[in-house]
Design a binder for these strands. Structure first.
Lengths: 348, 348
DNA sequence: CTGTTAGCGCCTTCAC
DNA sequence: GTGAAGGCGCTAACAG
């Protein structure tokens, strides 16, 4: 570079502030600026401070594309999801964004129709053009073999959120759904309920299937039985909970407690109870799973399980950013016992 | 570059397929490949075809960082939102992603706490590092002067979704909330309702304030009056609808119809009615706004207004990508008349 | 501990 | 219509 034109030259409309401007302002080399930016250890305090000042004065922001092109990281994390139970996905996004912001990363979201034909090519497109540093897989995609194997081929790190199938196949974050469902069932049992009905998750949703396992296991462990008609299929929607609830509440011998495997369905059950004029929780105990605000507004005292959804995504994102060995992280859930469970008729 | 090392050289683990590989494979210059990729007109059919073949064979994906660095576009659109009524934001995301995918763009999401202190710097960070090609502002941020002026300083194109304040300040997409609320009010009026109560949007939500305007305007245009206590404040949540509903339904002279300015609040009103043992729609007509699936599951025949949320975001994104002059686009809404409005007592 | 020199992969300008 | 240089802003080797 010759001397007559420095970065000051304002010949066209000023472009952006670059690392070169910062270096000049701080009176150091661009490499020193780069070192400070990347928090490399071997930098003298004097230079670090000078650079930090220059950055602040100039309002400098490193160009992510240039970093990605020159370096190994894109500073981009992808969140891939399919069927937005919008509440759940929102929570995941919040958690992922929080972790990203903390580390100077950004979140790119991508929706995939897992029933569609070109799942793999969508992944290839996104990952290939974006050079994502990592991918978050949310249910039910956390169990999709095509996506995982594509990611493995591409050698992109990914973390599975609340997976069920293929345990240990990749790093994952979740809660112990089975244990939670068992605890909920024991809780009902201890309050004297024996005629407990269960509204199951949709069959495609593998992670949640563990809730059913937990319920059945807990019942048999206590020596209880699930009466005919007491095991209903659900679809995780309020409408499906409503139909299941109506079916259960019109049985000749109706249950004294209904355990819906998510709160949206619990909402439906409660609506069915209102419609049928059944007193809650006096004449029927309803419990759910997932702690949705809507279900709680219907019945402020609904007993349910709170999953730390945002925290799961935060943790998963951190695992992606920080790297490290593959781990299976099981986060704590909370059994939120409010008072929707009244004493059942069989209390000794 | 000397001759002994071409791009074939596989000395380290193979990197990515680059434009150079494609050019070599197709037997053309890299510039020709670039022309085909960017759909520039002046390319012979033969070359175009050769390049397209090579791209397909090699499974080539252009590196977005390199394009952004060399060219003027980053192929990244930002969606900025604050308080996720998760359903609404989800819809927006879907629409924005659809438009992005169609055009080879990607969507980066960023949440901002508009009550927080550093709104401007969050914008600067995101936009400055990412070099976004455009920004989508969703309510209530569509009316945030700090964000808009920051974006204007940065000279980043942005589109406002459902704005209210500062009309014409930037391109925007929305519906005519005021007109929709008027039509809804006329509908109630025509069914014979005169004692109509309204549950207003939160005062911060400027776009939705037009719904209140529309209601009041329609009432006075018909020569009706809003009785004392019939105008309730709401917060767009189910819980706030529940309290407002309880307040209205315990009035000595209660309304014959309640118009909730969104469906979440209509849900609350319907719950209040169930709890009070009031027959819907026989003894009370409830209408809403926004067509939420949850409200509809509570009352399958709820009359409401359907806003084309996803389409709004799709349109806004397209405006960003395609450029063109600033426009204010008003999309069609639908008054979804099911049958939650029973004849009121004053029908002539 | 610090600075210099090459590129990363693509698009832009300008010759041909 | 096509191709050859140059550089976007940054980081990765090196050298000092």
């Amino acid at each position: 570079m010759n001397d007559e034109t420095g970065p000051e030259r304002p010949d066209r409309a000023e472009r952006h502030v670059t690392i070169r401007h910062v270096a000049q302002r701080a009176g150091v080399s661009i490499k020193s600026v780069s070192r400070v930016l990347n928090k490399e250890p071997a930098v003298s305090a004097a230079i670090r401070e000078a650079v930090e000042h220059a950055v602040a004065d100039l309002n400098y922001r490193p160009n992510i594309s240039a970093r990605a092109l020159a370096g190994a990281r894109s500073y981009l994390i992808g969140l891939i999801y399919d069927n937005p139970s919008s509440n759940y996905v929102s929570e995941l996004q919040i958690g992922a964004m929080t972790a990203c912001k903390r580390a100077g990363y950004h979140l790119v979201i991508e929706q995939i129709d897992s029933a569609g034909p070109n799942v793999r090519s969508v992944i290839r497109d996104a990952v290939g053009t974006l050079r994502l540093d990592g991918v978050l897989l949310s249910p039910p995609l956390s169990d999709d073999d095509r996506i995982m194997s594509e990611l493995e081929t591409l050698a992109i790190p990914y973390v599975r959120i609340a997976p069920y199938l293929y345990p240990g196949r990749a790093p994952s974050v979740g809660i112990d759904d089975r244990l939670a469902a068992m605890q909920m069932t024991f809780h009902l049992w201890e309050q004297g309920h024996r005629d407990i009905a269960f509204i199951a998750p949709p069959s495609g949703h593998a992670a949640a299937a563990r809730r059913r396992d937990g319920f059945l296991h807990a019942m048999s462990e206590r020596g209880g039985t699930v009466k005919p008609g007491f095991m209903q299929e659900g679809a995780f929607t309020t409408v499906s909970g409503l139909s299941a609830g109506q079916a259960l509440l019109t049985l000749r011998d109706r249950p004294t407690a209904i355990f819906a495997s998510n709160d949206d369905m619990a909402t439906g059950v409660m609506i069915a109870a209102y419609q049928a004029g059944i007193d809650l929780p006096g004449a029927l105990s309803v419990v759910g799973f997932d702690d949705s605000p809507i279900a709680r507004s219907l019945h402020p005292l609904l007993t349910t399980v709170r999953q730390p959804t945002a925290e799961m995504a935060d943790t998963a994102t951190r695992m992606l950013i920080e790297g490290g060995p593959a781990r299976t992280v099981s986060l704590d859930f909370e059994l939120v016992i409010r008072s929707s469970v009244a004493p059942g008729p069989y209390l000794p």
